[in-house]
Design a protein around this nucleic acid. Sequence first.
DNA 1: TTGAAAGCGCTAACAA
DNA 2: TTGTTAGCGCTTTCAA
Lengths: 353, 353
Amino acid sequence: MPPRKPAETDGNLAKPATISDVALLAGVSVGTVSKALNGRGSLRVETRRRVLSAAEQLGFQANKAAVALNSGRTYTVGMITTDTIGRFSIPLLMGAEDALGAGEMSVFLCDARDDPIREQYYLRTLLSRRVDGIIVTGRRTQARPPIGTDLPIPVVYAFISSADPDDCSVVPDEAGGAAKAVDHLLGIGRRRVAHITGPEHHHSAAVRAAAARARLSESGLTLVAPPLFGEWSEAWGRQAVQILLGAANDLDAVFCGSDQIARGVADALRAAGRRVPDDVALVGFDNWDVMALACQPPLTSVDMELEKLGRTAADLLLAAINGDPAPGKHANPCRLVLRDSTAVPIAPLRARD
Amino acid sequence: MPPRKPAETDGNLAKPATISDVALLAGVSVGTVSKALNGRGSLRVETRRRVLSAAEQLGFQANKAAVALNSGRTYTVGMITTDTIGRFSIPLLMGAEDALGAGEMSVFLCDARDDPIREQYYLRTLLSRRVDGIIVTGRRTQARPPIGTDLPIPVVYAFISSADPDDCSVVPDEAGGAAKAVDHLLGIGRRRVAHITGPEHHHSAAVRAAAARARLSESGLTLVAPPLFGEWSEAWGRQAVQILLGAANDLDAVFCGSDQIARGVADALRAAGRRVPDDVALVGFDNWDVMALACQPPLTSVDMELEKLGRTAADLLLAAINGDPAPGKHANPCRLVLRDSTAVPIAPLRARD
DNA sequence: TTGAAAGCGCTAACAA
DNA sequence: TTGTTAGCGCTTTCAA
């Protein structure tokens, strides 16, 4: 039988080189290799060079499991989405993944699909894998029960928030976003503002509607009609316009709870012979490019800056992992993105920002 | 000072219990605990019970790093999306994650963001973490260079495919999908079919257009006008309709390369006074609910079954990890989803399927 | 400056 | 049936 290397043909089973392989090739001990590779201790330059070149030659990559075993750190975090990953979760995940990757952390993706059983299963799995921390996200901003108590590692909630005020949650400032939308409409001279949004029991719908009302009332105004609660769809947007035109025919602006609704509203207004923005200015929420850009005209919209939010969550998690936790609810500002649906051809009263 | 437990207050630094903790509590050796927990060897029922209860009491979860270290398996796979994670990647990821989770594997999420440098960085990271396998996905179905050569672990390409025919790739049968769309249009009696799609250089656009043509020609027909290549947007769909109505005013069906295009087409046709589906039947591609359902009328569309595709990729990867690789390109059939845009009020010639 | 050896938490072979 | 021990790959004292 051949002496050394087993089954040279099936390159696919070649075991990765270990630190002893490197030591052997460099003619030193494993301890020395470890020092050379990690820049610890003091070695002769020549020795270090020899080790590095041996490692290079073997394509050596330290086995992270071994490292984890005696450092106690895995440089790994878990990301649990409580409900199905969707449009809102993606930017969150991306932002977090990006920030964590920069910190040399790898991310375990866990999709709990609205199933508490799965959620707990993933939690156990992550703990068993000794992740250094966990980010919990969800598709709604509403507070949820903590995912666990007395966990041995830090947890940060992103977008969604924990019902325990001592937990660290990073959420969009939806009320602030709604206020910005209203401010903008007022800034371009609109006074008869309507609000169309999603289901009344939906946290985001309620918060945004309340904030819009509050902001108007600060200016001594009211909504031109009570908020129209319905669903998060274009169809509802269209339908709501019919209701609205009956109730408040003289409206000059509509602030919508979502871009989808706003798009339906735009279509229905056009069909009814109202020009956007000339007769009616229109603001959406989410700044979902697919909707906002395809809308005719393109839609001014509130952006929750989800990617940045994910990044913030990740940064807070990293800080907590390093012993510097930031408990409490952190609100991230929203940003208003201006487009044609609120562009005033001849500006009667320019907004300041 | 208190005798036993250190710093009871900061529950957050409590180190997870180890197997020796369990052994101590149960009054047995670590070997016995291992056997009891893994159902190996033969133990007295009473002993096993005692160990299990001790483990339970301590909330013991085996440290996966240690397990990985001596089994050589991490029960972990990497998922690299070569381009930014988006609408197409999600269902793929979800399907794969689901199938892998069922196999007790955890998934590392890696978003390479169209950057080859990041891609190679992630590859090295994953190898260093000794993942058992890797799934590579992308937003385009076009073949791409292999992510690495002579890798020590199996790789499966999903949606995107590897340029190396010996690699394992799972792709949607886009040509088959396009054929189904055309068949359906012919089945409901349409004969003057047009095709509007994305950029000519885009692999999917080219494949779908070619397949549509081929299928028509099998029936002795041709497209009512040369395929209109443009971009993947509603605006292009609208614009293309203007061109089309000039060139082939008597068309009775449009097959579109995407749902977004199709939606633009629907809007423009309506604006031009053509009824859908009565005058012109309409089929999209992607079955993207947001577009297909919001379209007026709701859109018949080709579904690439991305989630199933992700699942298949994961299954093939698991098989490969277990020593049973399935090299080559595997085409997954598409499914035609029927909606109102091809509903024939009075069926003149019912399709068979 | 380098090597030897202990130990991280667990499994498996072997002994008792 | 149970315990002891070697070792997985690496880091880190401590000696040499």
